[in-house]
Design a protein around this nucleic acid. Structure first.
Lengths: 174, 174
DNA sequence: CTTTTTGCCCGAAGCCTGTTCGGAGAATAG
DNA sequence: CTATTCTCCGAACAGGCTTCGGGCAAAAAG
């Protein structure tokens, strides 16, 4: 019998993510409303086995949660734009991060290139976009912004489970 | 009794999205794994009433689906980047749209500004990013690209249900 | 090689939840 | 006032989630 006095056993040891896990993740990334039984058919396992894997993947943080994907246009926010912000000094200030309180702001990244911050926003109208840009400009550390308005969206999805190995293979000479 | 001979009755007439709907959508956009009973408590309705509203919102297309939100880094794709593509002529060609077949490509938008296309990609390494850019450059209609690498992501979420009315209100003089 | 341990899987069963149904109540139109 | 429509609720059924115990194979230990 194993003693576990001083060394606490982890509930989920950091196991490798295998091919079956990726299949499950691929299905869930496309449609998380599928039943465990049907998921099991797709990957060749029983429902309890799939359930255990999904529980582990959630505990490991690979699955960050399940969310409803809403249609921005039907919600009254048909205008999508990317705002590139150039800041004085380092961009990550409390004031800039407070933009996350607005439901119009969907993403905030620190980035390389000319700009320091890339912000993805979805607003009701060009007037609302102007109002949002006005709020950004009011922040003292903002030096300039450049806005790219999405005229049409051809693809928009959450992170996918698969990885294309061919991208990393040695590039042949051109 | 109403005759329905020539005019087929819609299963879900295009009803207005009211405040209760938005509350439900807000909850589901944050966590779609909540039960209808708990959702009903949050908005002051019974489980069947919430169920009917959600069914209608799905039929209307406001809820496009429920998906698992995966962690790109833990899946082996820690590098997020936005690629701006300048194309010859109009950007939306079949070759460019075929980039959607790659699981690394998460978004494709036609955009205003200097660029014609904004592509959001998540890759395993800088080498993989180079390989992906190489594929983009191989397309005949691509004139130039500019890549912004996300150093850190401070916010990344799906479209939110709320709309900030204050953004559209008249801007006072500065 | 034998034994033990570990990890992963499955079938069965209980319980929680999704889903449907019929009816009540309010608001609106006729 | 009456009829219609719409939305809601309580109850009940059915189905899926979740747990449990046990079996099997591979790896590790002896």
């Amino acid at each position: 019998m194993q003693k576990t006095d001083s060394l606490q056993k982890r509930a989920f040891p950091p196991r490798e993510i295998d091919a079956t896990d990726r299949k499950i993740l691929g299905e869930l990334a496309r449609d998380a409303s599928v039943s465990f039984a049907r998921l099991g058919e797709a990957v060749g396992l029983s429902a309890p086995a799939v359930h255990e894997r999904v529980k582990r993947l959630k505990a490991q943080g690979v699955i960050r949660g399940t969310v409803a994907h809403l249609d921005g246009a039907r919600l009254g926010k048909p205008l999508l734009a990317f705002v590139h912000v150039t800041t004085k000094g380092w961009g990550k200030t409390r004031a800039l991060m407070s933009l996350a309180d607005l439901p119009e702001v969907e993403e905030i990244h620190s980035a390389t290139g000319d700009t320091c911050l890339i912000i993805k926003v979805r607003v009701a109208s060009s007037l609302a976009l102007e109002g949002l840009l006005s709020r950004i400009y009011d922040l003292p550390e903002v030096r300039a912004t450049q806005t790219y308005v999405a005229l049409s969206t051809h693809l928009e999805r959450s992170p996918q489970a698969e990885v294309t190995q061919a991208l990393e293979e040695a590039e042949t000479l051109r």
